[in-house]
């Protein structure tokens, strides 16, 4: 087989189509964005070469960009908490259920397959104030003042609300992954712990969860990477607002380029995002690579 398939022309035939499309659209685009980032350019007319000026502006003078970094960090932390810990909780619960497990898993996963657009629309209705949405109606039972609670248009919490909605959508994904890992834990381990007198909580805390630690670490980084590139929830649910209260790096980049028509400046933001994503990616490789070697 190696003889027949190992010829250069055959290998080329198999790999070249994917290589070409991937290189042209992914790699070349990003290099190209790097090139644009050295110019002052509005998309039409003359490109003016300004060297590192965009980056200097970005890092030293642009307060909004600095706040978007901060927002992205908060956003990412909330998402790791919801998706990893929430997903783990769902997975543990699922692994304890015997009846209807498949049906439950299928239903728990539903938000993952619904488009972000639909989810944002649904949440803007659930969290509506006028007319009173379901959430406020429910909360007003406990405290009537909450009936007029603003969610998406409240600068103090709009970032958290956005992060929550994204976490909500993707939680099911990590549930499925952790569940698959949990049922891979040898039953003898859990049973041995129980015989030694461990409670259910101790069994999970000391035996089952440490056993799937590599999967948890790997998925923390996947969530991290996913949140760094998050765009739709901030853009659609709150438009990055009110003001810049829930603006993320990606939405800021998009608005700089396509709303303010600052292509060069937007590209510089894009390159910053790429650098951060790559650092996280390299960390991911390193950690999962080390685990694989063990």
């Amino acid at each position: 087989m190696q003889k027949a398939f190992g010829k250069k022309s055959i290998i080329l035939l198999f790999i070249f189509p994917a290589f070409l499309i991937y290189t042209l659209f992914v790699i070349v685009s990003i290099v190209w964005a790097g090139y644009y980032s050295f110019f002052d350019w509005s998309g039409v007319g003359e490109k003016i070469f300004i060297g590192l000026q965009n980056y200097i502006e970005l890092l030293s003078r642009d307060d909004v960009f600095r706040s978007t970094i901060w927002h992205t960090v908060i956003y990412t932390i909330i998402n790791v908490l919801i998706q990893v810990f929430g997903g783990l909780l769902f997975a543990i619960l699922l692994s304890r259920v015997k009846k209807g497990r498949v049906a439950l898993q299928t239903l728990y996963y539903v938000p993952v397959v619904i488009s972000s657009v639909a989810i944002c629309q649904i949440f803007s209705k659930l969290l509506s104030v006028t007319p009173t949405g379901v959430v406020n109606q429910l909360l007003s039972v406990f405290n009537p003042a909450l009936k007029v609670m603003e969610w998406t248009s409240n600068p103090n919490i709009s970032l958290y609300v956005t992060a929550f909605v994204e976490g909500y959508k993707y939680l099911g994904l990590y549930m499925v992954i952790f569940y698959a890992a949990l049922i891979g834990v040898p039953d003898e381990l859990g049973e041995a712990a129980r015989i030694d007198g461990a409670s259910l909580f101790q069994e999970y805390w000391h035996v089952r969860i440490p056993y799937i630690k590599p999967v948890i670490v790997a998925n923390c980084l996947l969530v991290l990477n996913g949140s760094l590139r998050s765009f739709e929830f901030s853009y659609l649910l709150t438009h990055g607002g009110p003001g810049n209260a829930s603006e993320l790096m990606t939405t800021y980049m998009y608005k700089q380029a396509f709303t303010s028509m600052k292509y060069g400046y937007g590209s510089a933001v894009a390159i910053m995002i790429v650098i951060i994503c790559l650092i996280v990616g390299v960390l991911f490789k390193k950690i999962t690579g080390e685990e694989a070697e063990k």
């Binding site: 991937y22 659209f25 992914v26 070349v28 685009s29 990003i30 190209w32 964005a33 644009y36 998309g43 990477n225 760094l228 590139r229 765009f231 990606t250 980049m253 998009y254 380029a257 396509f258 292509y263 937007g266 590209s267 894009a270 390159i271 995002i273 790429v274 994503c277 790559l278 996280v280 990616g281 991911f284």
Partner: peptide
């Protein structure tokens, strides 16, 4: 490519 977000390619692709 798993680590590269699509948004960053949008400006060059658009032009």
């Amino acid at each position: 490519g798993l680590m590269l977000p699509m948004q960053v390619a949008l400006i060059p692709l658009f032009t």
